[in-house]
Nucleic acid binder design. Structure first.
Length: 427
RNA sequence: GCGGUAUUGGUGAAGUUUGGUUAACACACCGGAUUGUGGUUCCGGCACGCGUGGGUUCGAGUCCCACAUACCGCCCCA
């Protein structure tokens, strides 16, 4: 127990890693249907990329960043989320240019880092699968993104998903609503929780999201952002809802839903599930929204964007808790047993020849006794056990046994090496 | 960052209340009964050690302190 992994990190071991690969493969398949292509960006970026985009006062930036100075005195940070890096790459590589068809649709999957207190489904190194679509301000792309998220969750076997949507409106909406909210909350200042007192002026929208009971009572009568939307913002949101209806996608409008990152505006959405594996009540497993202005913030043109991200650790917890069936990994078809001196080369060759016929084959590598080898074949659930001993070696034959039926046949070793399936038909 | 609970072999763990010789039991693994055939059974083996470091004591897995890690709640969030 000399060394242990850093706090909040995890080793994904064989068995578990197969589940990860499955989830990633399903995601790739779903995204491909919608013509999203993969983008891979660095795991660390200039600190400013995140601080500029997430908001200087956001919790992610003020206390959760894994930032450091490198040997060249550059202020870097491990990425706490995926969007900022993708936007930076989008701008730096001029994907906004006229020769790249719009919208530009990309997805990513990989580790993210946040310095916080680990808990189940909350790691310091965690993994997200996310998508971004740039260059369209049409509500249709918001809805396509939402539909794709729903499609993905469905493909993964997640049931009873609740889609919550809201809008943060545009700049003007946010300013007028923010003031209205402050005007409403200030008379209740003394009743608010300590956290919310701090949030009132820093980020009043967050008070709406408070879990404190007293806060919630106060917030219940607070003004709704939906009443402060500009005509343009309202039109956008109305069209999003209309298109969701057109696709028969169920949703609830949650006017109190907000975002921890500052770059969001207009449509925001969350996919939530009520599963005790993730805590009490509804928990978000996938969240996203529109972020017009972010491309410009990082030095690009005024270009719209919308995307979502889902947490893989949480997703896997949820899938395990919902008894989602994962496809079985590789089955062992043939286990080759060697008995006695001189069979090493012969068994290795058979294994090799079987593999070249695309048969999943294995043998013993611990020089163990026949009994142990047969036990191993059984434990690995081998469909067939092939045996080479002194007799077979002399006669250039091999014994093939069907483990389920117990049927055996001895055939020339060459026939197995040439066409294993033909031999199986004689069993 | 704050509060709480926990940490004993490869695994699940008993033992901590009442500090006292060999750390229970089970699973897994390895070997044997059966030196070329598995899933059953029986027999045997398997922690110089109780998260790490200090302390109290004649004596600490059991008490005290610090630290580390995990889990739960808060904050926040995927």
């Amino acid at each position: 127990m000399r060394y242990q992994r850093p706090k909040g990190t995890a080793d994904i071991l064989p068995g578990e890693s197969e589940r990860w690969a499955y989830v990633e493969n399903v995601a790739r398949r779903v995204f491909a249907k919608y013509r999203f292509d993969e983008i891979r960006t660095p795991m660390f970026e200039s600190f400013d990329v995140f601080s500029r985009t997430s908001g200087e006062t956001s919790d992610v930036v003020t206390k959760e960043m894994y930032d450091f100075m490198d040997k060249g005195d550059r202020h870097l940070s491990l990425r706490p989320e995926g969007t900022a890096g993708v936007v930076r790459a989008f701008v730096e590589n001029k994907l906004y240019g006229p020769d790249v068809p719009k919208p530009v649709k990309v997805y990513y999957m990989g580790p993210m880092f946040r310095y916080e207190r680990p808990q189940s489904g909350r790691m310091r190194e965690f993994h997200q699968i996310g998508v971004e679509a740039f260059g369209s301000n049409e509500p249709a792309i918001d809805v396509e993104t939402i539909a794709m998220g729903m499609d993905l969750l469905t493909q993964l076997g997640i049931e009873n998903v609740r889609l919550a949507v809201n809008t943060l409106g545009d700049q003007e909406t946010r300013e007028t609503f923010r003031q209205a909210l402050i005007d409403y909350l200030e008379p209740h200042f003394d009743e608010l929780s300590e956290d919310s007192k701090l949030r009132l002026h820093k980020n009043p929208l967050r008070v709406l999201d408070s879990k404190d009971e007293t806060d919630q009572k106060i917030v219940a009568d607070a003004p709704s952002i939906l009443d402060y939307l500009t005509d343009e913002a309202k039109a956008h949101f109305d069209q999003v809802k209309a298109l969701l209806d057109a696709l028969d996608i169920d949703y609830v409008v949650d006017a109190t839903m907000v975002r921890g990152l500052d770059y969001y505006n207009h449509t925001i959405f969350e996919f939530m599930v009520n599963n005790k594996a993730l805590g009490h009540g509804y928990t978000t497993i996938c969240a996203g929204g529109r972020y017009n202005g972010l491309v410009e913030e990082l030095g690009g043109p005024d270009m719209a964007g919308v995307g979502f991200a889902l947490g893989v650790e949480r997703l896997l917890l949820l899938m395990a808790a919902s008894n989602v069936e994962f496809p079985a990994a590789h089955h062992l078809e043939a286990y080759v047993v060697g008995i006695g001196e001189g069979t090493d080369a012969a068994t290795l060759k058979v294994v090799s020849k079987l593999r070249s016929q695309d048969v999943v084959a294995d043998r013993d590598y611990l020089n163990r006794k026949p009994k142990a080898q047969f036990k191993t074949a059984d434990k690995f659930n081998a469909r067939y056990t092939l045996t080479i001993g002194q007799t077979e070696l002399e006669n250039k034959t091999i014994n093939v046994k069907d483990m389920a039926s117990g049927n055996e046949v001895t055939v020339p070793v060459e026939s197995v090496e040439k066409d294993f399936n033909a031999v199986l038909e004689t069993l």
